[in-house]
């Protein structure tokens, strides 16, 4: 019977049984905003708050801000699939190239 203990380097540690805490509001372990080549840009004037973008986004990147009554977009996680643009009945969403934005993800040395 030994008291021998292996040494596992910090960065390779895995919790016992690979059980990890659940995320709360977002999963910072997989930030996907830097996948994007285009982003959906909203025209709040034209938006009818139909909530199609909110309901159809696979990445849960659109939410209604109850206070401002405006749709809020999540730049950290939007992958740029453009389902929201395709499903918008008011035509208030347009895809725009990330290169058009001074802080577009493609311009960042370290996106997020």
């Amino acid at each position: 019977m030994s008291d021998f203990k292996f040494k596992i380097p910090k960065h390779l540690e895995v919790p016992m049984g690979a059980v990890i805490p659940a995320p709360v509001k977002e999963n910072p372990g997989m930030i996907t905003g830097n996948w994007r080549t285009e982003r959906p840009v909203i025209d709040h004037e034209a938006c009818t708050l139909c909530l199609n973008c909110f309901i159809f986004c696979p990445d849960a990147c659109w939410h209604l801000d109850e206070k401002t009554e405006k749709m809020m977009w999540n730049a950290r996680y939007c992958k740029g699939c453009m389902i929201c643009v395709n499903e918008c009945p008011a035509d208030c969403l347009t895809p725009q190239n990330e290169l058009d934005f001074p802080k577009g993800v493609v311009r960042l040395d370290k996106p997020f």
């Binding site: 596992i8 895995v14 049984g17 690979a18």
Partner: peptide, 23 residues
């Protein structure tokens, strides 16, 4: 008290988790 059981690991964490069982 929600947790996730058994997510994917990085391949280089494979030896570490094997080692955990060995320990």
């Amino acid at each position: 008290r929600p947790v996730s059981h058994g997510p994917q690991i990085f391949p280089d964490q494979g030896p570490a988790i094997d080692l955990q069982r060995a320990q």
